[in-house]
Design a protein around this nucleic acid. Structure first.
Lengths: 353, 353
DNA sequence: TTGAAAGCGCTAACAA
DNA sequence: TTGTTAGCGCTTTCAA
């Protein structure tokens, strides 16, 4: 399988040589500009050491020939590509937009490019090995689920890398950590301002997810500070989907029509699901039900009632990750750092009676 | 700048040979397995021609040495990377998730990888030139705004490429085209089923956007088939944002409290904005206002009332784009194709009285 | 300031 | 079935 088991009607090779001109090489440029390839290379990489007139001539030749250096050849010798790879758990919803955007911006400021790839099917070390990752100058990985094997195989790549949001961090590896606790505590306390502790619930994400666990824990902690006891049913795990929120809502809200209920959702999607369920059950928000989400995605401001949510500083995360990565490339030996990304509650209509 | 202007406490080279071992080369593997580098290369690329026992021995050596082929060297000679680049107008909202997901899936099925990069600041031909794009085996570009220069500089790259959703297409270039018209017509007709022609509006995207224009035109056409005249104010352009929808709603809905109004939005975000405005003005949906969006993003099913929307087959688009690209890589000379991606209305609560 | 030449790590004839 | 060898297009000493 591969390049040519098919109807290759045309003559192989150049054929009629019309439009399909093969890319020009450094030797072509050198010849046209009447210099050596070394000089051409110099105007590309260290222009300050070549005579202005020569440089000009070379540049003209380059643009006349539409010369673009072969990145493989270049990389083979320079051992860098100036591209950073970002690995995400799967192709990102609305969620990661800002993170990518800011990562991209920062990278460009430093003359780097960013490419994104998903790791959906990156279950095994083998998969990582198979990835054409070794052309990257650095890797930024967002691993929200604990996967020691994956983490290990990534770390074994032994290249500049920053981990976003891993549970424990890996010795010697830079890291950006989402600080879920402050935001989650704020959310819980805010809910408790207007809802009895026994009527507050956390509709969480997957029990195995780092962030989901943190958020649930913070919520539980606050509740325990305010109440005698906290029912097990007050903290539930599911997944980060609207379906789960909806399901929870339909199952739990109907019986609570006459009570004011507070819901702290594991993320905005779950919150939206809960809100849908409420709407279907004729439960008013924020009248009978107060909802707070997590992430602070754009949708919070778009829907009505606007959704209170714990804002996660995605732009800061993207920026920090890239900066860490670049600084490690520049200084491979420096000590590993962890940069905390603080979260904080943004109150909107959905939780203010 | 580079590898070693820093506190390199350890002896250069292997040092204590602990963790920082430099990557092993094909020659290392060959030596350990007692074969030539050619044989190592063969077990990697054409395993069927090497004796099973030898292959096994080589594979052991590879894994012992954690050998990973240098992709630059490999690319330099094979002239392929098996990676496809997807260029997007900017880092994608919720919108592109499915497209990427399906593109990724299909690419992997064929042994390719996909990387995504944004073209936000890709205004000029220069920018394209500067992109480290020539390591890609093919490019898939989603260009929703007319930008002849950008298109041209992309085409000038002269590599396997497919354009998604460009206005006219470029001779000789494969293309996937979103067929806005059928869906938009369905939406208009559906609205007209329960709303008077004079009470129907299109709150469109940017006037310069291909899709926005198509959608507006189809809407206008249907209206004109049903009504004597269509007011200019019935078709407005803005941008693809909830803000614009909200703004339009606040400005136009207040005065229409006593009429049943139909709104066909240029995309789902705009529709959400209109719905927010309606909610704020106390206008009920679908009672007094019927709304249809475009794109069929996940949010349609999450909010209440669920948003009727014209579904765009993003998965098909991603799949087709990758398939076109791969088939062109396999057969550079074949004729250019355009694959239409049909749209169709999905009716939900927001438009059914 | 410039050029000649030796690789970078791998693949692909061509031989054996 | 395997090995030898000549590059792929570029950068980078080392000389001039």
């Amino acid at each position: 399988m591969g390049k040519s088991q098919l109807i290759n009607g045309a003559t192989p090779g150049e054929g009629h040589g019309h439009d399909q001109h093969k890319p020009s090489l450094i030797t072509d440029v050198a010849r046209l500009a009447n210099v050596s390839t070394a000089t051409v290379s110099r105007v590309l990489n260290t222009p300050e050491v070549v005579a202005p007139a020569t440089a000009e001539r070379v540049r003209e030749a380059m643009s006349e020939l539409r010369y673009r250096p072969n990145i493989f050849a270049k990389g083979l010798v320079s051992r860098t590509s100036r591209v950073l790879g970002i690995i995400m758990p799967d192709f990102m919803g609305e969620f990661y937009t800002q993170l990518l955007q800011s990562a991209d911006t920062v990278a460009r400021e430093h003359g780097y490019h960013v490419v994104v790839t998903s790791d959906t099917r990156l279950g095994s070390a083998d998969a990582v090995q198979s990835l054409p990752l070794n052309f990257l100058d650095g890797i930024i990985a967002l691993l929200t689920f604990p996967d020691r094997k994956l983490t290990k195989s990534l770390v074994d790549l032994n290249m500049p890398m920053v981990l976003i949001d891993t549970e424990e961090g890996v010795p010697g590896i830079d890291r950006v950590r989402i600080e879920n606790e402050p935001g989650a505590r704020q959310a819980a306390m805010h809910l408790l301002d207007s809802v009895a502790p026994a009527d507050c619930f956390h509709v969480g994400g997957p029990a195995s997810n780092f962030d989901a666990k943190d958020r649930a824990k913070a919520f539980g902690d606050v509740l325990r500070e305010r109440a005698e006891s906290v029912g097990r049913h007050q903290i539930m795990f599911g997944d980060f989907s609207a379906d789960w929120g909806y399901e929870w809502g339909i199952a739990n809200l109907r019986a609570r029509r006459d009570t004011v209920t507070g819901v702290f959702a594991g993320n905005d999607e779950i919150a939206l699901g809960v809100m849908s369920a409420a709407s279907e059950l004729g439960i008013s928000i924020p009248g009978q039900l107060r909802v707070v989400g997590f992430d602070g995605t754009r949708i919070c401001n778009i829907i009505r009632p606007a959704l209170s949510s714990v804002a996660v500083p995605f732009d800061l995360i993207g920026r920090s990750a890239v900066e860490l990565c670049l600084s490690r490339i520049a200084e491979p030996g420096r000590e590993a750092q962890t940069i905390p990304a603080e979260t904080h509650l943004v109150v909107r209509e959905s939780s203010t009676p």
